[in-house]
Amino acid sequence: MGLDRRVFFKVLGATGLALAIGKKASATKSSNSDVEFNGILYDATRCVGCRTCEYECATAHGLPAPKDEVEVVRTTNETCNTVVNTFQTSKGEVHIKRQCMHCNEPACGAACLTQAMHKNETGAVTWDGDKCMGCRYCMVSCPYDMPKFEFLKTNPKIQKCDMCFDRQKSGEKPICVTNCPNDALLYGKRRDLIKEGRRRIYEKPELYVDHIYGEREVGGTGWLYLSPVPFEELGMNTTLQQSSYPALTKGFLYSVPSVDLLLPPLLLGIYAATKNNQSKDKEDE
């Protein structure tokens, strides 16, 4: 017998451990599919670019007040969770608000190895500072580049729109929705928002392009956009895949438990086989 008891137990132990890890790996959240997420419908035809949402957001989140530099196309950053940009388009000036999209299946959440990035039942994707270790893998993964990192802080945080999660919990609407003077923002169940978006497009087809951005992009996002012009003209990425981002790593993640389980016995078999050969060689000599 080429395989002694000790080796056997060791490999058994190793396999067991691998099994335990593998199990953890394949367990994904299944409860989310039953939950109806909240979302926000943004209508670019109604937005006048007053940037009230920017100021209110900054105040509510304790961030510095936004600067007055409307003419450049700005992006969100670690001191600013939302921006309203103005584009010169084929239909004249159009404004567009940008912030975290709160994806149904967020790439940042799948990327996070501590579950610091988390899609809540309210629909908000939030960040938990007690769990985050600052690896910034969420930033690498996010197709919209929304998580922002405080590179110049000793105790850095990840900043991004949290859909006013605290207000949501107490039944209030996000601060930008409450304060929008022109009803460009509508807060509600995502399913109802899509219906409402379709209704608006159906009733005024000359006003809108026939596309709700966020309905299918990256598997669906919490923020939904209506626009009078094709979304490329507003600097939105329209080439993103329709399926969810975490699906990109699924194949690899599923292969992990199989490899962890199947490779050790195979190696052990080869080991036992070559060991036998060797002892035979010795006997032959």
């Binding site: 994904t28 501590t114 985050c132």
Partner: peptide
């Protein structure tokens, strides 16, 4: 050195927050 919040580096190990759907979690383990 690269971690922004290195004092939380133990989090994915001790089990209070397993991000099991993360590739980085598997790589770390």
């Amino acid at each position: 050195l690269d971690l922004g919040r290195p004092w939380h580096v133990i989090n994915p190990m001790i089990g209070n927050s397993f991000g099991a759907s993360s590739v980085l979690f598997l790589v770390a383990w």
